[in-house]
Amino acid sequence: MCDESIHQPPIPQQLTPLLLDLADAAPRDLDNGGVLRRLTDHSRKLPGVEATAVISVDERRTNTAKVVAASDDASGQLAQAQLEFDEGPGLEALRTGRRLADLPLGLPSFRSRWPRYVPRSLSEGFTGITVIPLCHEDRAIAALHLHHQHCRHHALPGESVRAAQALSDAAVIGVAHERQLRYVDQLQAALTSRIAIEQAKGMLAERFEWTTHKAFELLRSYARSHNTRLNDLVRSVIDGPPTEGPFRRPSPR
């Protein structure tokens, strides 16, 4: 039931620190989607919003979406239901890149549009929804869901929609930064791995009078046949004593 008597303070003066928080991607964000999790937390505090969730495009699987954050179990389950039903406002926003603002889900038109999702949302007590796509490089990479009530004389306040859009725009910057940091880390890891492999190849080539090509082939073959990570094997060659391990120095005759 909607309570029209509750007065909420204006948002703008409260928004600046949240925008800065979302635009900044810290190292802690790289493994758990921290920017989008903070977006759900901050958006949940907006006037009229009862619950939030975010679904995003899976970077590793083309055209596949996943739930990355939710303010509570109900919103998380609703987001997951969209993926299972292959219908709903979040998926539509991801596909079209268009914002869906203050939709009264009880209307017959929305029941026809999303016949399985809408009854599920209404059963959870969410009669209205606003979905804001997060767009980067001309495509939607995620969709923020704002669950709320929608009564005859009550809708999600316009300032909340505008604030959520601003938060989403800031989150896009944070996500882009997050991805850039992850890419740099991957490049650094690849470079470090390559340097170690070259060092191990040189050590084995000197130890056994092999070519570096033969040394690498034997390293790779040993790792595969013993179900060992190549990087771990390489480190054992570099850090271990030459008289131990699978590539021991031959005993002098």
Rank of each mutant, 00 (worst) to 15 (best):
C2E: 12
D3Y: 05
S5C: 08
P12D: 11
L15D: 01
D21N: 13
D31P: 00
T40V: 14
H42N: 11
L46F: 13
T52S: 08
V54A: 05
S56V: 05
D58N: 15
R61P: 01
T64E: 14
S75N: 06
G76Q: 06
L78A: 03
E84T: 14
G88T: 01
P89N: 00
L94D: 03
T96E: 07
G97H: 00
L100K: 02
P104A: 09
P104H: 13
S112H: 12
P115Y: 00
S121H: 06
G128Q: 05
P133I: 10
C135I: 15
H136Q: 10
E137W: 08
L146Q: 00
Q149I: 02
C151Q: 09
R162Y: 05
G174P: 03
A176W: 03
Q180E: 14
L181N: 02
Y183S: 15
Q186W: 08
L187D: 07
A190F: 07
A190H: 12
T192Q: 13
R194G: 15
Q199I: 13
A200V: 11
E209C: 10
H213W: 03
L219V: 09
H226L: 04
L230G: 06
R235F: 03
V237A: 01
I238P: 07
G240E: 08
G245M: 11
G245Y: 08
F247S: 13
P250I: 06
